[in-house]
Amino acid sequence: MEQNQRICKKCLLKEMQESEYFHHLYDYISRLDADIKTDESKYQDRLERCKACDSLMNGMCRICGCFVEMRAVIDKNGCPHTTPKW
């Protein structure tokens, strides 16, 4: 990691501005090792299925509490629904 990058380790989500929070989320996703990430088309399909699910609320899964964009990007993860959507 570059020395000039500032990583906030003690911020709570409620303390961040919304745009800053999303920046951190997508920055984290972009830094994940490629060997654990799913391919882009599979990722987009997972997100579309999540968007159609009644358990999605404000980007979070109400079943497990995850941020669906984080869960869906990891290839080995699955949908936590009793009848999995993906």
Rank of each mutant, 00 (worst) to 15 (best):
Y26G: 01
L32Y: 10
K76G: 03
N58Y: 09
D35Y: 15
K76R: 12
Y26F: 15
D54I: 07
L56Q: 02
L25F: 08
I63F: 09
R49C: 04
H23W: 09
R49I: 02
A34S: 15
A52E: 06
E2D: 14
K10F: 12
R31D: 10
C53F: 06
I63L: 15
K37S: 07
D27W: 12
H24F: 12
C11G: 09
N4D: 13
D35N: 15
E69I: 03
E48P: 03
Y43W: 14
R46D: 01
T38C: 14
I7V: 15
C66T: 02
K51V: 02
C50A: 00
E15V: 08
A52R: 09
V68A: 02
N4Y: 07
G59Q: 00
G78P: 03
E18G: 09
E40G: 04
C8F: 12
R31W: 07
M57Y: 07
D33C: 01
Q3M: 13
M60E: 13
L12P: 01
S55R: 06
R6Q: 12
L13G: 11
E2L: 10
I36F: 04
H23I: 04
K51G: 05
H81W: 08
I63G: 10
A72D: 03
L25C: 06
C50F: 01
R49K: 15
R46E: 05
C8M: 08
R31F: 09
M70I: 07
S55L: 00
C79S: 02
P80A: 07
T38H: 05
Y43R: 01
V73M: 08
I29P: 02
L32C: 05
K14R: 14
T38I: 15
D35I: 12
C11W: 09
F67N: 00
